[in-house]
Amino acid sequence: MSLKIELNPDIRKKITAKYRFYTYRASILYSPGIIPVIKEILPFPWLYNITVLRAYPELIPDLVRLLENSSSDYLKYVAIWALGEMKCSNAVSALAKVLFSDENLGIKLMASQSLLKIDYWDGFDWERLEQEILRTQKMPRLLKNLILIWGRSGSNELRVELDECVREDENVANALRWINKRADNVMSLPDKLPEYIRGKEYPLMEPGLDITASSYYCF
């Protein structure tokens, strides 16, 4: 006979807050003792701060199983993101399976981004990628990522023909220019601050500290 315990909503809220706080701390300060706890609560993402997942490579097999077996789109998002953040080559096969599946656009986009982050292509099915490129011509955001993945194949030109209107899409055109001119992985480049951010809006020092010469003298 199973025992079901109904918790008071306030108590449930406090327990959830504690779990999220401690898992956040564990994402900053490595604590191997928390790994069994995370494995238990992995299917319940409201109980933990997801940043903790990228700090523990020991969770990779669990995340791959979650990706392969979960029916929850959100849990798939969580697993795909964490595997990409950890740059786990062991997850490439599972991520490629998602990329070449009939999953929704958001999940396939995340899978393509994680594959680019991991940047490990031994045994990757480039022919299947070509087929996927042809299938996704009406989805330029995903197509852009697929083209960038193709750029990691060592070839700087696609072997498939894209419709002219597709090539003119800004996202697709930028990706094609990238693989034609660059050999590096776009995901390896550091993010740049937008040009519209000025010094007064993004201070180089913490506010409240006056280090001008006049601040050292009393008049």
Results as ranks from 00 to 15, higher is better:
Asp73Met: 09
Tyr77Lys: 15
Arg198Ala: 14
Asn104Asp: 15
Thr16Gly: 10
Ala94Thr: 01
Tyr196Leu: 14
Leu66Asp: 06
Lys4Thr: 15
Met86Lys: 06
Asp73Ala: 12
Asn104Glu: 14
Tyr77Ala: 11
Thr23Arg: 00
Val172Ser: 03
Leu7Tyr: 13
Leu162Ser: 03
Ser89Thr: 10
Leu83Gly: 02
Ile107Phe: 06
Tyr216Arg: 14
Gly151Cys: 03
Arg128Pro: 07
Asp169Trp: 08
Leu83Asn: 04
Asp122Ser: 09
Leu134Val: 02
Lys13Phe: 13
Pro43Tyr: 01
Arg177Cys: 10
Tyr48Phe: 13
Trp126Thr: 01
Arg177Lys: 15
Glu157Thr: 05
Tyr19Val: 09
Phe219Cys: 11
Glu157Lys: 12
Leu209Cys: 03
Leu83Thr: 04
Lys4His: 14
Met86His: 05
Ile60Asn: 07
Leu83Cys: 03
Ile15Cys: 01
Met187Leu: 08
Asn171Gly: 12
Ile15Glu: 00
Lys117Cys: 07
Ile107Cys: 08
Ala82Glu: 00
Lys144Glu: 14
Gln131Gly: 15
Met187Asp: 05
Gly123Val: 02
Ile34Glu: 00
Tyr74Thr: 02
Trp121Arg: 01
Val166Cys: 06
Arg141Tyr: 15
Ser153Glu: 03
Ile80Met: 04
Leu189Arg: 14
Val172Trp: 05
Arg141Gly: 12
Leu53Gly: 02
